[in-house]
Computed example of a mutant assay.
Amino acid sequence: MRDTTSELLTRSPRAIDVARAAGVSAATVSRAFNEPDKVQPHVRQRVIAAAEALGWLPHGAGSALARRRSLIAGALIPTLANGIFAAHVAALQETFAREGISLIVSVSNHDPAQAMRDVQAMLTRGVEAIAVVGEDFGDAIFDLMTARKVPYVVTHGFSAESRHPTIGIDNFQTFQEITQYLLRLGHRTIGMIAPTQKNNSRVTARVAGVRTALAEMGLAIRPQHFCEGPWSIQFGRESLRAILAADGPRPTAIICGNDQIAFGVLTEAHMQGIAVPEELSIIGFDDDPISAHTTPPLSTVNIDRTLMGQLSAQYLLAQLQGGTPALPPPMTATLIPRGSTGAVHP
């Protein structure tokens, strides 16, 4: 006897429900996910659409289901364009590998829809735990992991107010401290060049930290001294040119959202004949290996992303072993003053 609509609403959807909704056999549903090359594309799309509408996901491989282990973990990162995530992923992989668990990595490109597709694909393959960079994907993606009883952790930002387990630095506090460092050097007209804040709450917290530190001194970033865009050397150069061309006093210091932007600002300052740090102090973020070798060496902030990856994997492994681990405290971000920052010259 077929299930009634009311019965479907009171139990979890099954493969047979997807088959009925898509007008195919249960075997075709299985092949659509496990052997997609054996299913015509338009049929597979119909099956996937039916599965999404019903909120159904297949279990992992049969062997994994039989032993209730897939020995696979997942990592969702926002981009491959920035090497800062490499050390984090490498540490995740190494720590999981010691326990016989392989790591698969997906890239969301800061797109919540892509992130959802990536997580669905991971769950389809039976991943046991997932480390996610940032929490800018909406509730649905985390509700899905929770519903499937897959432990997860949000990395690269610690927030005591978050409803998710988080491991990383306090981005607000870190950029507040960067600003206070420049204020102690006597800077009062400070600009900022940041990566885009869209779908990136970490950057939003950093901008807020700068603004708060300035407000505590009765100061603010002038609108013409704030730029937001791609995290690239070219954007750093273009932004400094725009700031220098604007009306009003020039900033004596620029806070950059990462070292790539700072490299661009430093390059453009040289091209414009601006002495660093005598006329303009520049500070980056990430401690890129190149930052110690620029002229002058770039002041920046170091985060131990290897440790972040290790802590994240250890937290997830403890959950997989049936424990209820406590989250580690916020990680320390280390300010590294170098030759690109200095006291304001009268």
Results as ranks from 00 to 15, higher is better:
8 L>F: 06
8 L>Q: 15
9 L>M: 14
10 T>W: 00
13 P>W: 07
14 R>H: 02
15 A>I: 11
16 I>H: 13
17 D>R: 04
18 V>I: 12
19 A>W: 08
20 R>G: 12
23 G>F: 10
23 G>M: 11
26 A>L: 06
27 A>M: 14
29 V>Q: 02
34 N>W: 07
35 E>K: 07
35 E>L: 01
43 V>N: 07
46 R>A: 13
48 I>S: 06
50 A>C: 04
57 L>A: 01
61 A>L: 12
74 G>L: 02
75 A>S: 09
77 I>D: 08
84 I>N: 05
85 F>A: 00
85 F>V: 02
91 A>D: 00
95 T>I: 07
96 F>R: 03
99 E>D: 14
105 V>Y: 00
113 A>F: 05
113 A>R: 12
116 M>S: 11
121 A>V: 09
129 A>E: 01
135 E>C: 10
136 D>H: 07
141 I>A: 05
141 I>M: 14
143 D>A: 14
144 L>F: 00
145 M>N: 02
145 M>R: 03
147 A>C: 04
155 T>N: 00
157 G>M: 14
162 S>V: 01
164 H>V: 09
167 I>G: 01
171 N>C: 13
177 E>P: 01
178 I>H: 02
180 Q>S: 14
184 R>T: 14
186 G>H: 11
190 I>T: 05
191 G>H: 05
195 P>T: 11
198 K>Q: 14
202 R>I: 03
204 T>C: 01
207 V>I: 15
209 G>C: 06
210 V>Y: 05
211 R>T: 08
211 R>A: 11
211 R>M: 11
211 R>C: 10
220 A>E: 14
224 Q>H: 14
225 H>M: 11
233 I>L: 15
243 I>Q: 01
263 F>K: 11
264 G>R: 00
269 A>C: 06
270 H>E: 15
281 S>M: 11
298 L>P: 09
307 L>W: 10
308 M>G: 07
320 L>N: 07
325 P>T: 07
338 R>L: 01
339 G>F: 07
340 S>G: 10
341 T>H: 07
345 H>S: 13
